[in-house]
Design a binder for these strands. Structure first.
Length: 648
RNA sequence: GCUGGAAUAACUCAGUUGGUAGAGUACCUCACUCGUAAUGAGGAAGUCGAGGGUUCAAGUCCCUUUUCCAGCUCCA
């Protein structure tokens, strides 16, 4: 007999070798039905796992992430089974669970059409109704490879051969006529998958490498109850209403024009105003932090990029003016980054250790020739403006300055309301990167990464490691943000560079009279303005905080004959530094309010004869509706306080 | 760059098997002078993304191309 400790410390005895499933069943039919997988002493396992020793057993349902993962993983097998039935020639790659569902990659002659989708969904539902039990079996590596070869699954054979190096048995899962190479864990039966929706069909490269064959990836999501699926789809619809690419256009922040080109959004007055406000604020904040503002050219001769290394690493990503390969003629390129330009400020004269740290910042417009399929609203564009900076430092200043950069970035992101949803990624090099991406020696890399790790650990920052995500000249701390579709991008980056100073001959004379190489931190405080604006539009669903609202107050006279009074109030607001307008059209007040509300105008001041008589305004906010009447001066004080404190 | 989807009035979208281009909103005009999310009537508005082709006839079928969307790859 073995002792099994259950939830809340209850201990029960079972025969040695009893499976977790049998234990669960003994606890109650309802629990067994809801159970997806279990954790034995904290390790996620199949319910079919036999318990051999005393242990702690947790039953995991769909409510937990581990449960969802298993549920969706099994769903991906059902998808594969349905595809096999309908398209017997399809070859199978991988089919994992992801954060919001599952996918399976297939090699098929023709990608699936929406029509095929319906058929596949119907077949999946049929399979669920058949209520097949999921069984697990193990094979020795050579037997496993033989089986997969017989099944004519070349991708699976490739995967299996890699696992077989370990010499461990290979696990398979089987439901009905369908067998798949898989590590699991899986549900006990497909019968629990009550609601299924296939969401997208896209291309995806085998093993994530664009040199490889492109497969057909089918995305889906599934739930134990139909109502949960409905709720999920409703949530997705609501997320889409926050999409900056939709509301940014609707609310007239930006637009795109066919004949201007891809990745070149046109900022409309509202978008331009927000970016101006952010830029003025950041430039002032940086000045107070001891930064020096620079303004350097937007393009330069090819020779500059050759020194920095960008010419060799990123020629494809640059907009080149002239023939890049004709060395007999002058050739220019628009700048894809600011580093080599800003270094010229440092190089302007001989520098002493007393000049350091030198904190150079610039509101820098950059140009990157992104591949045509990469562009996305304001998030991924070909021309953008970034709060860029390079700090040139003595080694003894590195830690403190790095902390300063991180504090500044956190302050900026917090002020614009985005920090709470950010995650941190320590982006490191891959010594074995096949494309020769990284410059410098292993010693230099180990040192730079050790320094960064020490700094991050000292601060106690929670971060993930991004392997093979470093810049070609050094490791990065990337601050990541997810858009409404869950896609992650870097919003802010802080990088340690030990290589470029030498390339540009950026020495300083130390206190001992010796020439020495400085460290350089590449950093941004708020990231690039377009991207930050995009995320703010999503975060606030278009209702930007008052201090950043392009139009802060709209005066709404009840009737046309109060137009002069409205204009007078507007002028008083403008004089107080508030961005105001008035709606003097001969429309009903409800109509004007509705429009202002849809435009997310923070405050509406309604004025009628009552207000004119008493010298007050009737205040309505987009959040709290009617706030009652007050003297105009009171409202101005209230608004200015909200603006000056940058209230979110 | 790759896979899939899309493009019709300023916006959101209808448009049957190929046979004269439609609605709502917005816009303009007029009336109404209004109390916290849509007043009424009338009017104007489209080379059906662009370029080729098939056809007596193309928004609709075929080819090319541009842009937008989702995903992959990439992201200094």
């Amino acid at each position: 007999m073995i002792k099994v400790e259950l939830k809340d410390g209850v201990v029960k005895e079972f025969e040695k070798g009893t499976t977790a499933a049998e234990v669960t069943k003994s606890l109650g039919a309802g629990l067994y039905k809801a159970a997806c997988v279990c954790r034995v002493d904290g390790v996620v396992c199949d319910l079919r796992t036999p318990l051999e020793n005393d242990c702690r057993l947790e039953i995991v349902t769909f409510d937990e992430t581990d449960g969802k993962k298993a549920f969706w993983h099994t769903s991906s097998h059902v998808l594969a089974q349905a595809v096999k039935r309908l398209f017997p020639n399809a070859k199978f790659a991988i089919g994992p669970a992801i954060d919001s569902g599952f996918y399976y990659d297939f090699d098929v002659e023709k990608p699936f059409s929406p029509d095929d989708f319906e058929k596949i969904t119907a077949e999946m539902k049929k399979i669920v109704k058949e209520g097949l039990a999921v069984e697990k079996f193990l094979l020795q590596p050579d037997e496993a490879i033989k089986l997969l070869e017989e099944m004519d699954e070349p991708y699976k054979v490739e995967l299996c051969k890699e696992h077989s190096d370990k010499g461990e048995p290979i696990s398979f899962y089987k439901q009905g006529e369908f067998t798949d190479l898989c590590a699991g864990p899986h549900l006990m039966t497909v019968a629990n998958i009550k609601a299924i929706k296939l969401t997208a069909c896209t291309g995806a490269y085998w093993r994530g490498d664009s040199k490889n064959n492109q497969l057909c990836r089918v995305y889906g999501v599934s739930f134990p109850k139909a109502s949960m699926l409905e709720e999920h789809l409703k949530m997705l619809e609501e997320a889409k209403l926050r999409d900056h690419n939709k509301i940014g256009r609707e609310l007239e922040y930006f637009t795109t024009v066919d004949y201007v080109g891809q990745g070149l959004p046109v900022l409309l007055p509202k978008g331009a105003r927000v970016i101006q406000l952010l830029q003025r604020w950041i430039e002032d904040v940086e000045q107070k932090k001891g930064c020096q503002l620079t303004k350097t050219p937007l393009f330069a001769k090819r020779e500059l990029y050759k020194i920095s290394g960008h010419w060799d690493h990123y020629l494809d990503g640059m907009f080149v003016l002239g023939d890049p390969h004709d060395e007999t003629k002058e050739c220019f390129a628009l700048r894809p980054m600011t580093c080599p330009f800003q270094y010229q400020v440092y190089l302007n004269k001989q520098r002493s250790y007393r000049d350091l740290p030198m904190r150079l910042t610039e509101t820098s417009t950059l140009f990157r020739n992104e591949a045509s399929g990469e562009m996305h609203g304001l998030i991924r564009v070909r021309q953008f403006t970034i709060s860029e900076g390079h700090y040139i430092l003595r080694p003894d200043q590195l830690e403190e300055e790095f902390k300063g950069c991180l504090e500044l970035a956190k302050y900026c992101l917090d002020t614009v309301g985005l920090l709470e949803d950010c995650t941190f990624r320590f982006s490191q090099w891959d010594p074995a990167n096949p494309n020769n991406k990284y410059e410098g020696t292993a010693e230099q890399w180990e040192e730079a990464q050790a320094v960064m790790k020490k700094i991050l650990d000292n601060i106690g920052l929670k971060y993930e490691v991004g392997f093979d995500e470093a810049a070609f000249y050094g490791p990065k701390l990337d601050i990541q943000y997810r858009n409404v579709f869950g896609k992650e991008d870097t919003i802010v980056t802080i990088q340690i560079d030990m290589l470029l100073a030498e390339k540009f001959g950026m020495y300083y004379i130390d206190s001992d009279g010796q020439k020495k190489l400085p460290y350089i931190i590449h950093r941004t405080s708020l990231g690039c303005y377009e991207r930050t604006l995009a995320y703010m539009l999503e975060h606030f669903a278009g209702a930007l905080p008052l201090w950043l609202s392009p139009e802060q107050v709209r005066v709404l006279p009840l009737s046309e004959n109060l137009a002069d009074k409205a204009k007078e109030i507007e002028a008083q607001l403008t004089a107080a530094g508030i961005r105001a307008s008035s709606d003097i059209r001969s429309e009903k007040i409800g109509y004007k309010i509705r429009e202002a509300q849809l435009e997310k105008i923070p405050y509406m001041l309604v004025i009628g004869s009552k207000e004119v008589e008493s010298g007050t305004v009737s205040v309505r906010s987009r959040k709290q509706a009617d706030m009652g009447t007050m003297p105009l001066s009171d409202f101005i004080a209230l608004a200015l306080d909200e603006i000056n404190t940058k209230k979110k």
